[in-house]
Amino acid sequence: MTCPEERVISFLAGELSPEEERRFDQHLLGCEECWAAVKADRAARLALEQLRQPAPAGLEGRVALALSLAAQEASKSPQAPKSSVARPGAGAPSVLRGATARPHRPRLVAAACLVVVMAAGAAGWLIADRSAAEPPQLAAVVAMMTPGSAPTNALRAGEHFVIAGQALMVRAYRLEGTEELVATSARPFPVPPSSHMLPGSSSQAWMATKGRLSMYGVNRRTGQSMFVVAAMPMAEMPQMAARLDLI
């Protein structure tokens, strides 16, 4: 630019005095270069307006769930500073403790996902296959959802299946008219490709949405792995999980 760039910038930032601005306006009438720069700046700002979009639907629920789990974990270890929730080396929580023995109160200490931890990554115990299509285990459980009607007695008691070579048990719950299916297995479940891992890069816990269904799962190195499918927005999953005593 042959004219001082600073003057154009000050003009665009509205920082010139009224007298300076009047003089610059006059200058613009005769300087094509400065006029083109002003027009380009304004056009770019206008185009950028399009990128001021809101966060995707579901992100708030995802963040909410992660924070809820973090708070839960923090409240369990009041001695530890809050920052410990995502610090490797914290004690590994149990996941779905006693789900088999206590059908009405499955316990998922989902903080597993918060304690990003856990040597698990280093041990490489969980290989999440996110490259394939939706895992058949997940698709089968989703297909068991019966919105608007009561689940079968077999599902309410806990029904055993072998899907894609994996033995799992599926149990139905209804809370305030909303159906939830909880699947448990001695082996980690494959993770759907569209899932988000919780939190950070740990592959222990994940969440995903499919239409109006929300899904949340935790895989463990030992003991029960699980996932829950519920016909509710992700934003409501934390409350549901708390009511089911999953977190």
């Binding site: 963040v63 992660a66 939190p199």
Partner: peptide, 10 residues
């Protein structure tokens, strides 16, 4: 975004 909120929360 999620990691940002978890860090900020802590």
């Amino acid at each position: 975004v999620q990691e940002t909120y978890l860090r900020a929360f802590a």
